[in-house]
């Protein structure tokens, strides 16, 4: 019991502290790759600090849903982060929710965020909500297929079990099914975190916004909670990707040395994946909104192929 509480506290603080950093690293790497200086990797912390001290302006037409949405977004993301293995293969709340709970809890956060966008009464809010729900709906089956591929080869939907089974066969990531599933899930990661080519996180251009349009009316601490929640979600999806496919270094016990190795390898893998995301973002242009379904269809097909190849090989 005490061990669980301690591990919850540790993992929660790790997630809360690390998620802005990952975002900062991605921004800085992207700037460097585009031969800009960039704001520095600590910028997200400064933003959080600033936003949390500011006052808020609530739109006249909004109801309590507008105020509830940031809290739901933040708490669902924080809860999900406790269900996935990060440094140790045993996630603190793994028993209480596997990968299905992860997907549906993130869905709960999105549900409220989209309602918050509609609650403002501006056309932007509605536009963002509508696009966000469309894209996430199309990303969902691809995500599930890729996850099923992993879950079926591990015979479990609990992420700690999946990680344990992956550690047992450390070269499995070379199997065709795993490669295909990784590719599918990577596309989903791009779509779900609103990165180029699906959405541009840096834009406030009216007609191309998705995520930013939805949260346009939020300010102060509410905006801080939403941004923080989005960073946590990004960290969650990245962790899901690296720890289920490449579980190297994941600690299987609570020994200090193992945990230190786990920590180091986790950060290293995160850095690699961030670099990959940056590379994709820099080498691609944002595609038109109505081309996004095609990209997600590719992810779905990759997921289906992954599943078929588990069956063949």
């Amino acid at each position: 019991m005490i061990a669980t509480v301690v591990s919850i506290a540790l993992q929660l603080s790790l997630v809360l502290l690390l998620s802005p950093l990952v975002s900062g690293i991605i921004k800085t790497l992207k700037a460097r790759l585009q031969t800009r200086r960039g704001p520095g990797i600590l910028q997200p912390y400064r933003e959080l600090h600033k936003l949390l001290r500011k006052g808020m302006v609530i739109p006249e037409s909004a109801s309590w849903i507008f105020s509830a949405a940031p809290i739901v977004v933040f708490s669902t993301a924080a809860l999900v982060s406790l269900m996935i293995p990060m440094i140790s293969a045993a996630a603190p709340l793994s028993l209480f929710g596997g990968v299905l709970a992860v997907v549906y809890l993130l869905g709960l956060g999105r549900f409220f965020l989209a309602l918050g966008g509609l609650d403002t009464g501006t056309p932007f809010g509605g536009l963002g909500s509508s696009r966000e729900m469309t894209i996430s709906a199309l990303a969902e089956p691809a995500m599930m297929l890729a996850i099923f591929t992993v879950a079926l080869s591990a015979n479990s939907t609990n992420l700690s079990e999946v990680a344990h089974s992956a550690i047992g066969q450390s070269w499995r990531f070379l199997a065709p099914s795993q490669v295909l599933a990784f590719a599918a899930l990577f596309i989903v990661l791009i779509a779900e975190t609103g990165r180029i080519p699906v959405d541009n996180p840096a834009t406030h251009l009216e007609l191309t916004m998705i995520h930013e349009a939805m949260i346009l009316e939020y300010s102060g601490p509410y905006l801080a909670l939403i941004e923080w929640g989005a960073w946590i979600k990004q960290l969650i999806l990245m962790t899901l990707l690296i720890n289920t496919f490449y579980p190297f270094g994941l600690s299987t016990d609570m020994g200090l040395l193992n945990l230190a190795t786990g920590c180091a390898s986790y950060l290293l893998k995160l850095l690699f994946l961030s670099a990959l995301v940056v590379l994709v973002e820099t080498t691609n242009a944002k595609i038109r909104l109505f081309r996004v379904p095609e990209l997600l269809a590719v992810a779905f097909v990759l997921g289906a192929l992954a599943l078929i190849s588990t069956f063949l090989f």
Partner: peptide, 19 residues
């Protein structure tokens, strides 16, 4: 599993519909 992934599509579309 294919039926499962289509169930996921259904669930996500239902969420969109109820938003």
């Amino acid at each position: 599993p294919i039926a499962g992934s289509l169930l996921a599509l259904t669930g996500a579309l239902a969420a969109a519909c109820f938003v």
